[in-house]
Computed example of a mutant assay.
Amino acid sequence: MLDLQNTSRSVYDAAIIQFPKILDDRGNLTFIEARRHIPFDIKRVYWIYDVPGGESRGSHAYRELQEVIVALSGSFDVFLDDGLAQKTVSLNRAYYGLYVPNMIWRRMQHFSTNAVALVLASLPYDANEYVKDYPNFKKMNQTQQRR
């Protein structure tokens, strides 16, 4: 299981999680269980679909919320930024999820046609959870990294 005790977050804390894959000639099956495959209790589930060509989603961080992002169908990239380092993770398999800790800037981009992104979140929706101003995000993270 991932170490969630560290309070200073980095893009290197983001990790690919492989979910169980049951192969069957009639069609494959993958399942996800909170606290078994996901390092938190799932409080909200949402999905993103019908993203027009060239559009991106996200471009924000969360103060406390953690999430796992899964490409249920198609593919897309997740750009991650901790204020110091950046990395991009490509998702294109329904049996892989990307764990993204809190206070990591994320942007989902380069959606393929008919892509569906499933997001499992550790908290219910709260508009106050979002950090949408990038300079403010960097300032918040630099303060946290000094502790």
Rank of each mutant, 00 (worst) to 15 (best):
L2I: 12
D3W: 03
L4K: 11
S8D: 05
S8E: 11
S10A: 07
V11C: 05
D13F: 09
I22H: 14
L23F: 08
L23P: 00
D24Y: 03
D25N: 11
D25E: 12
N28R: 08
L29H: 07
L29I: 15
T30W: 09
F31L: 13
F31C: 13
R35H: 12
R35I: 10
R36E: 15
I38D: 06
F40I: 03
F40G: 07
F40Q: 02
D41E: 13
D41Y: 03
R44K: 14
Y46T: 09
Y49W: 10
D50V: 00
D50K: 15
V51E: 01
H60Y: 07
H60S: 01
A61F: 03
Y62K: 09
Y62N: 15
R63L: 12
Q66Y: 07
E67Q: 15
V68C: 13
I69R: 10
L72I: 01
S73C: 09
D77S: 14
D77E: 13
V78G: 04
F79R: 12
D81W: 07
L84S: 12
L84I: 11
A85K: 11
Q86F: 05
K87C: 07
V89F: 03
A94T: 01
Y95R: 09
Y95F: 10
G97P: 09
L98W: 05
M103L: 10
R106D: 03
R107M: 12
M108Q: 13
H110W: 01
H110I: 00
H110F: 00
S112C: 05
A115M: 01
V116I: 15
L118W: 02
V119S: 11
V119A: 12
L120G: 04
S122F: 05
P124E: 13
Y125N: 11
A127H: 08
N128H: 09
V131T: 04
V131R: 02
Y134F: 14
P135G: 04
N136A: 15
Q145S: 12
Q145D: 09
R147M: 12
